[in-house]
C-alpha cells in the first residue's frame, strides 16, 4: 500500500498541471549546464515550485520559485523530478 502512494506522489515537473505545486526531489537527470543555471536561480533539491503555464506547440513551461518566474523546455521539465504537494 505504502509503495503505491509513493508512486502517486513522485512525478516530474512536466506532469504538474498549471497552478499545481511541487517540491524538487532530484535534478541529476538534467543537463549539467542547465542544472548549474537552475541552481544559480535558487532551484535546488527541496525548492517548492508552482507551475504557471505551458507554451504553445509544446513550447517551454513556466514555473515560479520563491517569487521568481523561470522558463525551461518541457523536455528538461520531464527530467526534473518532483513530489506533488
Amino acid at each position: 500500500m505504502r509503495k503505491s502512494t509513493e508512486f502517486q506522489t513522485a512525478a516530474v515537473l512536466a506532469d504538474i498541471r498549471p497552478g499545481g505545486a511541487a517540491v524538487v526531489t532530484a535534478l541529476h537527470r538534467i543537463d549539467p549546464l542547465l542544472r548549474r543555471r537552475l541552481n544559480d536561480l535558487g532551484v535546488a533539491e527541496g525548492s517548492r515550485l508552482t507551475v504557471r503555464r505551458f507554451g504553445p506547440f509544446g513550447g517551454p513551461l513556466t514555473f515560479e520559485c520563491a517569487g521568481q518566474l523561470v522558463g525551461i523546455r518541457r523536455f528538461e521539465a520531464s527530467r526534473l523530478e518532483v513530489a506533488r504537494t
Binding site: 513556466t62 522558463g71 528538461e76
Partner: peptide, 11 residues
Amino acid sequence: SEPSVFVVELP
C-alpha cells in the same frame, strides 16, 4: 554537437 539548452528568467 549537443542539443541547445534553454532557461530564461522572466522578470
